[in-house]
Write a protein that binds this DNA or RNA. Structure first.
Lengths: 201, 201
DNA sequence: ATTTGTTCATACCGACTGGTATGTATATAT
DNA sequence: ATATATACATACCAGTCGGTATGAACAAAT
């Protein structure tokens, strides 16, 4: 509750954005309350509407500036350039299991949540979300293609189909994990996905 | 718009319930509007609150009386009693592809949608949804166990893990399908899932 | 020191929400 | 025929929502 002696617009914007991310993560976009967001970071409506034109744009900024960045760093960046994607993929699965927080078990994957909620009812949300999942699929696909060339991936593997399936299964694992309080379901899914990926070599 | 000459309470309740299902399916539970539900079937608030105590209970009835029943009929009933689950599972996948509607591509799986939205923020929703997915997993698991006994399933297969993975992948496939207007993603996922299931024998 | 644009805070608006209170028409039991 | 329970319809409520108008505090430029 410290007083703000001075302006710090970038910090203010960042705080509101992060609070919006959390709020949307927990309640979904439509049920997210601007009031709660602002209360959580002690800012006013004036501050919010100075930095963002409306609720929808705030939501899109959460997707483009936070979710996109986080998903890329964790799930895509490691696959860039490798021509041996199987161990890299399995590392990602394992790392996700190891770093899985209670929050993630309970609230799932932000990308998945927003996709389920918004993709079908708002075109701009749909497009922003599609960019991320397309990029994700494409990243896996390219790594599989490089893997084929260097002999690390079987020649009859359908790179596109497999990539789609991997992404769907990960998101599905997050989703199903919500019906448990334990990470067990998620771990089981990652394990089976591991088997599946191993079968590609 | 025919006039209601007489009372038909069961029909009224059923109409409201079906309209509620559609509304929740499209907009999610929290964003579902009772006004829109009632307008779509030309009933009044009095009728609604006569048959259901409140919005939440209406939502729970949609889960227990509609989603549960539909999911069971399509995904679980065929697996009951079989000791050769692989072709049955593949039949289910194929049938889902064949009967996939534009609605389902756009709006996904009602069970998945509600799970993503409500499981983490409301305990009663969580429990009703968990019952369905648990039953689903259990049904697959039992069929795999019978399959093992009769030699149709490999002996080193983890029935529980595989069942969890199948359910997660199907739900994930529905979810990812939302980012496309075509059934392509969904079909690809079912195809890969087919490969995975085939590897269990 | 003054001006000007930025960054917020406050007060407020109209629309809409789920839910309720009350009244009325219909069916059923006696 | 009378009494009573059921099945709705209508009007309305308090609260919340996203969004806006206004002005003050502040920073930067002149």
């Amino acid at each position: 509750m410290e007083s703000k002696e001075t302006y710090n617009p970038e910090e203010t914007r960042s705080q509101i954005l992060q609070a919006a991310f959390k709020e949307i993560y927990v309640y979904g976009f439509q049920a997210a309350s601007l009031k709660r967001i602002l209360e959580n970071v002690n800012h006013s409506k004036g501050a919010l509407y100075h930095h963002f034109p409306n609720k929808k744009e705030l939501g899109l900024c959460v997707i483009n500036e936070m979710i996109d960045v986080n998903m890329y760093a964790f799930f895509m960046a490691p696959l860039k350039e490798t021509d041996n994607p199987i161990p890299v993929l399995c590392d990602i699965f394992q790392k996700k299991i190891d770093t899985l927080t209670i929050q993630e078990i309970k609230y799932g994957c932000p990308l998945n949540n927003l996709t389920q909620e918004m993709a079908s009812i708002d075109k701009e949300f749909y497009e922003s979300l599609k960019i991320i999942s397309d990029k994700w699929i494409f990243t896996i696909e390219q790594s599989l293609k490089r893997g084929k060339k260097s002999g690390n991936i079987r020649n009859d593997v359908d790179e596109n189909g497999v990539s789609i399936f991997i992404v769907a299964s990960i998101e599905g694992a997050f989703g199903l994990g919500k019906t448990t309080e334990s990470p067990k379901f998620f771990e089981q899914c990652m394990l089976q996905l591991n088997f599946f990926v191993q079968s590609l070599k």
